[in-house]
Design a protein around this nucleic acid. Structure first.
Lengths: 195, 195, 195, 195
DNA sequence: AATGAATGAGGATTCATTCAT
DNA sequence: TATGAATGAATCCTCATTCAT
């Protein structure tokens, strides 16, 4: 098990700085284009000093991933629990998901941006983490009323794909994530089923 | 302008081999994880020899991108022109798009898989190429009959996002791309508007 | 002078553990291939903590060397003193020497295995320690009856070389050290001089 | 198969320089204490440039080993073939062996000096090379007339051990290798069997 | 049209060691 | 007695690229 990002009893200050910097850089440039030197420089350390806190670049990514999943899941779960109606539960999830994804958390963005392919020995763990998060949406879609000819599997993939791909075209300054989420949902539901 | 892959009166044999190898490797491992050595080895050349054909790795990527856009656009355009009804024109486009993206063309896959971020000086050109391709969908959506409250901008982003994200979860052996495209569209249209 | 391992009125527990671990690892992997980390891990310490007990890796080696010489000398001396006849005194020395060297003491093995070359500033001390041990054999050979044309200097080098080199080809499970020592001596004496 | 050290049709100049430098440094400092930097500096190259000629440090060692065995075997075989009598054939072998070992060839010295232990993935090949060389001595000893109670296996180990260990105490300026070899043999044969 | 040989910078990682606590 | 955190230099090696031939 890799260490969780949440600190122990002590301050563990630099470890968190390190993790933050790694998340920011992985998100901005991808895994391969980010060097340990870059990360070290970002926190004012020497490259070798990172290895006191993390045994490898791969493990650093894994820890960022874990923390990313933890954070986005927390936010989405909280948003969902505040709603009763299936339709609104899903909407709340989408908004929270997109806000984390576009605006707020480098950690969460890494989870979707860094393709766990040829990133080292933790590949499978990364994929498992991602899947473990997406299970929520499987459930939310299951609760939903949908026309019988709609395959819920593809409905979920349609929705998540559209949300996740927003990372690609989103630019700060346009519509805020909340609006984007709602517009995408409106486009999806068409005229019917409106709240 | 870098030459397109089809340019050149002569055989230009090795150049094409080189492009094919680059496309295959960029698609499989990403830009940063693919080295010039890898590409050279794949065509039985020495790394230095690539530079007779291409001035840099960046330019190699750009050329693959251009060719990718050319190929997917060609296929999509042909599919669209075979249809008259807006609904079916869009459907045909989606199917062609997804087939290229998932199954058929390393070139096309690179266009979506390699995030043009910190991949070198051609960043902007890459993004422009991608955008230039997506214009087609803007037009196809414009022709479409849609409920008035649906924003056509977001409708397009929803659809393309869902299609493009399929790269992430698609595994050969599951439903073929054509079926996936149609299921996603059915999930999008819900019960209404059926052909 | 660095302290010998037995010095210290107190328990000096960790210091001894440290030496044992260092001896074991130096013997198994050599000086350069053994890191302070390895040694620390072997006794459940952090690398920095070693420096409370020893000022440097070099000094650690020196101490192991000293202890190695002390131990093998002790054993050989005891074995020799139990015999009267020159021939048998030498034989006893060879057996004790080989048993320590092949089987019993990591410390003793380090003395012969780690070539004191570019191992740090103690080089000369290490060589001196080794020489100081070998003096015993000079004496044992001096007592011996030998044909006049045999140079006692080379006789000693022949014998010690053969014994020490056994480290190279010895594998546990073959003849035990005692037998090896006696067979080598028999090969050396040929038919004559038999006890 | 690693490349042999003997040049191809071209000059292959730097490769040989590299091999020479590696042999010299491995002999002088051992494998672990010699860095690629050291080797590069010795031939006026940058460290990375070595990798054009050799794929790894381990392979460099392997090639030196191979060349070392080749050279010493060649010399020893030539010396042996010039003699008829078993006793003198062995003597010639010992002299040649020791001359290579002490004076002449860094390559040969590496074979005996660098313990193939924790030196990387070629360990077994290194040991095999060493064994393959020593087979000669098995044969030479087999031809020899020896008292029946002498085990020829141990006789060979005695002899080779004594010769090889000479590396440890030999200092230029003392008796030359030829004399040393003969003195060791005289010590071994005692008064009898003299030529 | 390509090779052989190299460059120089940078890749991740490990080293022995330090020192405030 | 030791730890936690770091240093600075070095480790082996790979990178994209160059250029005379």
């Amino acid at each position: 098990m890799s260490n969780t990002a949440t600190t122990g009893p002590r301050q563990d200050n630099r470890r968190l700085q390190l993790l933050d910097a790694a998340a920011r850089l992985f998100r901005a440039h991808g895994y391969h284009a980010t060097s340990m030197r870059d990360i070290a420089r970002a926190v004012g350390m020497l490259p070798g000093s990172i290895y006191y806190h993390f045994p490898s670049k791969d493990e650093l990514l894994l820890t960022v991933y874990e923390e990313g999943v933890r954070r986005i899941a927390e936010r989405v779960d909280a948003a969902v629990q505040a709603q009763r109606q299936p339709q609104q539960r899903l909407q709340a999830a989408c908004i929270a998901h997109l806000e984390m994804l576009l605006d707020q958390s480098d950690y969460a963005q890494v989870v979707l941006r860094v393709v766990p392919d040829n990133t080292g020995p933790s590949q499978r763990r990364l994929i498992a983490l991602r899947d473990q998060y997406e299970v929520r949406f499987k459930q939310l879609v299951a609760e939903l009323e949908l026309p019988p000819e709609v395959d819920r599997h593809y409905f979920r993939l349609l929705l998540l794909g559209a949300l996740n791909w927003a990372q690609t075209w989103y630019r700060p300054g346009g519509d805020p994530p909340r609006i984007i989420a709602m517009e995408l949902l409106r486009a999806l539901y068409g005229g019917e089923n409106q709240t």
